[in-house]
């Protein structure tokens, strides 16, 4: 199966990712995405019937034998006085961003 991404889908993905693509950039992006999908589509040749989907290869034991979990002990946070000057805008206590109108 060969995936075919459309111009509309690229525009929609760009919108969701908050990317502003110019009309000239879109055809190139369609081509790139389709090339990537075609490449990955080779995997479809494998028969995966009866195989559980794998989201992660590092399956570590969790609670009850628990190597991958963290103890609930507080460690020092960053010093605000060193963090805030790195922000684009701040009053020293809060980060400031352009007015957010709707969620």
């Amino acid at each position: 199966m060969t995936a075919k991404v459309t111009t509309e889908e690229v525009a929609r993905v760009a919108e969701l990712a908050s990317l502003e693509l110019t009309p000239e950039e879109i055809p190139g992006m369609v081509g790139d995405l389709n090339a990537i999908l075609d490449y990955v589509a080779e995997l479809n040749e494998l028969d995966t019937t009866g195989i559980a989907p794998l989201a992660q290869i590092s399956e570590l034991p969790g609670a009850g034998g628990s190597a991958s979990l963290r103890k609930d002990a507080v460690e020092p946070s960053l010093n605000r006085a060193t963090v805030m000057p790195e922000a684009p805008e701040s009053d020293g206590r809060f980060f400031k961003v352009p007015k957010v109108i709707e969620r």
Binding site: Q56, S58, E59, A63, G64, G65
Partner: peptide, 12 residues
């Protein structure tokens, strides 16, 4: 991708 699946045992 940054977190492995969470597995817990029946005993736990």
């Amino acid at each position: 991708p940054d977190l492995p699946p969470l597995t817990i045992t029946p005993d736990w």
